[in-house]
């Protein structure tokens, strides 16, 4: 029974991280309808910023703020100057250009900081089950999801962002600055990706650290459904718990297969994820 509790707690902790990445993907999808490989790139830049700033200033939280700021700025710049002119042509080209950005970020980080692994601190003490660090991850992800939900449902900004993403022409006609909305969407998404990086990075970071985490993040996003921030949370926790239980009871080599099975199962019943609105989609 103890074992079950242990597995549940560690599943929740890693699930929170996947949920954070999934959340940032949901925003991007809401804003640009892209599968965005630049998310791990931004997370990477953010954690290396933190790893550089924190020791200099002696404060984890200064590093944390620096990471989120740099990450959000990188997201906005990338959208405005790299992604927008290319994604306009086709969605596929948009995906590929974010892949190109990922390569640039990974190589760039390797050039500056080397390919070695570096220790990277948790926000809070990691000792205990659940540890303060785990609790921080869960709480921050829940708060972010709630804020996003409010942003999209109750604020004019959120409405404009959705309009700009899904009906850009109509939005433009009714006076929405579509370009600005896209950049805002990317900045918010990059901010959340940076947060996800700060949660997923510890204990060790290296240029490829987010590859696999990002795959689980996408898994969580499509399992939960890209329409709803709470879907990302449900998806993240499902993936985290599922992989933890299977690792613990059947063997860790099955962890990735579990994620695959989860995707197949959920999507065969609900092709738009758990929290999709069944009638919303038009072909």
């Amino acid at each position: 029974m103890d074992h079950f509790v242990d597995l549940t707690l560690s599943g929740l902790a890693s699930g929170a991280v996947y949920a954070a990445l999934a959340l940032s993907l949901v925003i991007i999808y809401q804003a640009t309808r892209l599968v965005n490989f630049a998310q791990p790139a931004i997370a990477l830049i953010a954690v290396y910023t933190a790893a550089t700033v924190a020791p200099l200033t002696g404060s984890y939280w200064v590093g944390f703020v620096a990471a989120l700021t740099v990450g959000a700025a990188a997201g906005a710049l990338v959208e405005r100057f790299v992604v927008r002119p290319i994604a306009r042509v086709s969605q596929l080209n948009g995906i590929i250009v974010t892949l190109g950005l990922l390569l640039v970020a990974q190589g760039g980080v390797g050039m500056i900081w080397g390919n070695e692994q570096h220790g990277f601190s948790y926000a809070f003490d990691f000792v205990g089950r659940p540890s303060p660090a785990d609790v921080f991850a869960l709480v921050s992800v829940a708060v972010v999801a709630a804020l996003l939900f409010c942003l999209y449902r109750f604020t004019p900004l959120g409405l404009r962002m959705r309009a700009a993403a899904f009906r850009p022409e109509a939005a433009r006609l009714s006076g929405v600055k579509v370009g600005l909305m896209l950049t805002t969407g990317w900045a918010i998404s990059a901010l959340i990706a940076s947060l996800a990086g700060m949660l997923a990075g510890p204990p060790f970071i290296s240029p490829n650290v987010f590859d696999i985490v990002f795959v689980y993040g996408i898994t969580a996003a499509v399992v939960g459904g890209l329409d709803n921030p709470f879907g990302a949370i449900i998806g993240g926790l499902l993936v985290g718990l599922g992989m933890s239980y299977v690792s613990g009871y059947a063997g860790p080599e099955l962890a990735t297969l579990t994620a695959l099975a989860l995707v197949v199962l959920v999507l065969s019943v609900r092709p738009d994820g758990i929290l999709s609105r069944p009638t919303a989609r038009k072909v």
């Binding site: 074992h3 597995l7 560690s10 890693s14 613990g248 860790p252 080599e253 962890a255």
Partner: peptide, 15 residues
């Protein structure tokens, strides 16, 4: 056991 691609040992250490 662990797989070198999966950087997570929580289940193993718990066991």
């Amino acid at each position: 056991h662990y797989e070198s691609e999966v950087p997570d040992l929580s289940a193993q250490v718990a066991e």
